[in-house]
């Protein structure tokens, strides 16, 4: 969405010129660029890499904002920022404290990427008791190791209030640019709340079920243009459940297509394990 960024550039330049002419300008310094900070918790850092993949938009972004925290890409580390982008899920006690501090410092907090918005595949760890998980991976000495202090995985909004969400594993560049542009223009970035099937039809794909495979597209939040199905695979559910999903009906559909009860649970649990737990709790 370079168009959106250019619109921002235009508007901000326009506002600058306007204020220069106006009577209020004597005291006014040039408007301060919004300060952006990027943080990552338990994850693969693929979502911040998506941000770094905005090669064409970089010069415009650099014009519009100051990036003051982005450990993977820049040396600067500042506590003075306006918008915080938070990637990754929470899986260590220290992460809770660090996240709370970010919340107090940021005016706007965006949770981005499946690990952050819903816990992501990291939640698969929650299928086992913590001590067992540690032993499975790090052996019997795990208990005494100070750097593998781990707790059950949580999404970011289990700890703090989140203002905006960017879904997906990984996020799409267009969604990051849309959110950034909206925030710079003072608008609310909207997110789709309909299932992936809508995107999939629009993309002209043959239904996964017609191809003899199964997926969770009917209950998963769209916005991805059904990219996984377009490239021959299935919807894995990475954007999490759509609001008010008819999980029970879809479970029946999956069973009709040959999945066992465990198979159905496995399907839902890949990305929505944390969400499903909440849903089951409500019932």
């Amino acid at each position: 969405m370079p168009g959106g960024l250019q619109l921002c550039l235009f508007l901000i330049c326009f506002i600058k010129t306007e204020t220069k002419k106006g009577p209020m300008t004597q005291a006014a310094a040039p408007p301060k660029k919004p300060r952006l900070a990027f943080f990552s918790f338990t994850c693969c850092e693929g979502c911040q890499l998506t941000v770094l993949n905005c090669e064409d938009e970089f010069p415009d972004i650099a014009e519009l904002v100051n990036i003051v925290n982005f450990r993977e890409a820049i040396d600067e580390k500042s506590d003075d920022y306006d918008i915080a982008f938070v990637e990754g899920s929470i899986s260590k006690p220290e992460e809770i404290e660090k996240l709370k501090k970010i919340r107090t410092l940021a005016k706007v907090l965006v949770s981005y990427g499946a690990c952050s918005t819903g816990g992501g595949i990291n939640c698969l760890k929650n299928r086992f008791p913590i001590e067992e998980v540690k032993r499975m991976v790090y052996g019997k000495d795990a208990a005494s190791h100070k750097f593998i202090d781990t707790i059950p995985v949580m999404p970011v909004d289990s700890v703090i209030k989140v203002d905006h969400y960017i879904y997906g594993c990984p996020i799409l560049k267009k969604d990051f640019l849309h959110t950034l542009t909206s925030l710079l223009l003072g608008k609310n970035p909207e997110t789709p709340n309909y299932p992936v099937c809508t995107d999939c039809k629009r993309a002209g794909n043959i239904c996964v079920f017609e191809r003899g495979m199964t997926c969770v597209g009917p209950v998963t939040r769209a916005g991805c243009e059904a990219i996984c199905v377009t490239y021959g695979a299935i919807c894995w559910g990475c954007r999490g459940l759509v609001d008010d999903p008819n999980v029970n009906a879809h479970a029946e559909t999956l069973k009709r297509h040959g999945l066992s009860a465990e198979g159905v649970t496995r399907k839902f649990d890949l990305y929505a394990l944390c969400e499903m737990k909440k849903l089951r709790g409500k019932e």
Partner: peptide, 28 residues
């Protein structure tokens, strides 16, 4: 870095999910 326990995450998952799960070890 927070350990993520991929070897445990993969246990009990289907063979055709493995590449999807293990890809998420690293974005780069």
């Amino acid at each position: 870095e927070s350990p993520r326990f991929f070897e445990a995450m993969l246990v009990g998952r289907r063979y055709d999910e493995a590449q999807h799960i293990m890809s998420r070890i690293c974005g780069i």
